[in-house]
């Protein structure tokens, strides 16, 4: 199925949940990323139970704590 991940269109196997996608996409420390699915933010608890479907738009928002 086709997903839009961080703005890029990607072909990903069907029927996966969000937690799997985080692994497939090599997201470092998956528990520490804020995930937006079709404009809604997901809680950490929702990651394992959210099944993705074709056309979903997913944004990974990483913490950036630097500034000095």
């Amino acid at each position: 199925m086709k997903l839009t991940i961080n703005g890029d269109s990607k072909e990903i196997k069907d029927g996966i949940v969000l937690s799997e996608l985080l692994i497939i996409e090599n997201v470092e420390m998956p528990e520490m990323v804020s995930v937006q699915l079709n404009d809604e933010f997901l809680t950490k608890e929702e990651h394992a139970v959210t099944v993705l479907k074709a056309g979903d738009e997913i944004n990974f928002l990483y913490f950036m704590g630097g500034g000095a």
Binding site: M29, G65, A68
Partner: peptide
Amino acid sequence: ACVFDSPPPANAIPTCSSAGI
């Protein structure tokens, strides 16, 4: 906080002094 809710646990995320910039 709407986006990131709350701070990550200590040591979970690198900052500049440890990761470079």
